[in-house]
Simulated scan of single mutants.
Amino acid sequence: MGRYRLHVNGERRDVDVPGETPLLWALREQLGLLGPKYGCGVGACGACTSLVDGKAARPCVTAVGEAEGKRITTIEGLSEDGDHPVQRAWLELDVAQCGYCQPGQIMSTVALLAANPDPDDAEIDAALRDNVCRCGTYTRVRAAVRLAARMKRGER
């Protein structure tokens, strides 16, 4: 067992787990953050996607020991009241069907728009290609990414 200090959603949080414990389990089981979902456990589906130092990362394959000292943001940390442009776009376009993959889709979109404020469809598809949606909401996801980009730029 080790004691690791994580910086999660703007707060310092301590977890007592072995260093090789997947960050996803520390987030969910130790810190009670249920936004990042367990999907595949091997970093292939994107359901757990969160931001680590502003970049999309898979907590299911990131060890707690590797995450110490880095800024971690889960969907719970995007905004207190759901007013982040990406969250607003998702709601406005009613993107979610079952919703399981949507926190990961949203977090990947946040990372994309931070790096590229005006992505075209090919760039959106490339950035989100590893976020699997069993319900097939990809067309709505792409439309929501475009709407969120406009919202972030102050356009409508």
Rank of each mutant, 00 (worst) to 15 (best):
G2E: 14
G2W: 02
R3Q: 11
R3D: 10
R3H: 10
Y4C: 01
Y4P: 07
Y4H: 15
Y4E: 05
R5E: 15
L6R: 14
L6P: 13
H7W: 14
H7F: 14
V8H: 11
N9H: 14
N9V: 07
E11W: 10
D14Y: 03
V15S: 00
V15M: 00
V17C: 10
P18N: 06
G19C: 01
P22L: 08
P22M: 09
L23E: 11
A26D: 04
A26R: 04
R28Q: 13
R28W: 05
Q30H: 12
L34W: 10
L34R: 14
G35N: 02
P36L: 01
P36R: 04
Y38P: 00
G39M: 04
C40Q: 09
C40P: 12
V42L: 02
G43D: 03
C45M: 05
G46W: 02
G46H: 03
G46D: 02
S50W: 00
S50N: 08
S50G: 01
L51P: 08
V52N: 12
G54K: 06
G54M: 04
K55E: 14
K55R: 15
K55N: 08
A57D: 03
R58T: 05
P59M: 08
P59Y: 07
P59S: 09
T62R: 11
A63G: 10
A67I: 08
A67Q: 07
E68V: 10
E68Y: 01
E76W: 03
L78S: 02
E80P: 07
E80D: 13
D81Q: 13
D81H: 11
G82M: 07
G82N: 10
G82E: 10
D83V: 08
D83Y: 10
D83E: 14
D83A: 13
H84V: 10
H84Y: 07
V86W: 00
R88I: 09
R88M: 11
R88Y: 05
E92D: 15
L93G: 03
V95M: 04
A96V: 11
Q97V: 09
Y100Q: 00
Y100D: 01
C101N: 04
C101S: 06
M107L: 12
S108H: 01
S108E: 02
T109C: 03
T109A: 04
T109W: 01
A111F: 02
A115M: 11
P117N: 11
D118S: 15
D118L: 13
D120L: 13
D121S: 14
A122K: 15
A122D: 15
E123F: 05
E123C: 06
E123R: 14
I124K: 03
A126H: 15
A126M: 12
A126R: 15
A127G: 08
L128A: 02
L128M: 10
R129T: 11
D130L: 09
N131F: 01
C133H: 05
R134P: 12
G136C: 12
G136Y: 11
T137R: 02
Y138R: 12
R140I: 07
R142T: 10
A144G: 07
V145E: 04
L147M: 14
L147N: 08
A149N: 09
A149V: 09
A149W: 05
R150Y: 06
K152M: 15
K152D: 06
K152N: 10
R156D: 11
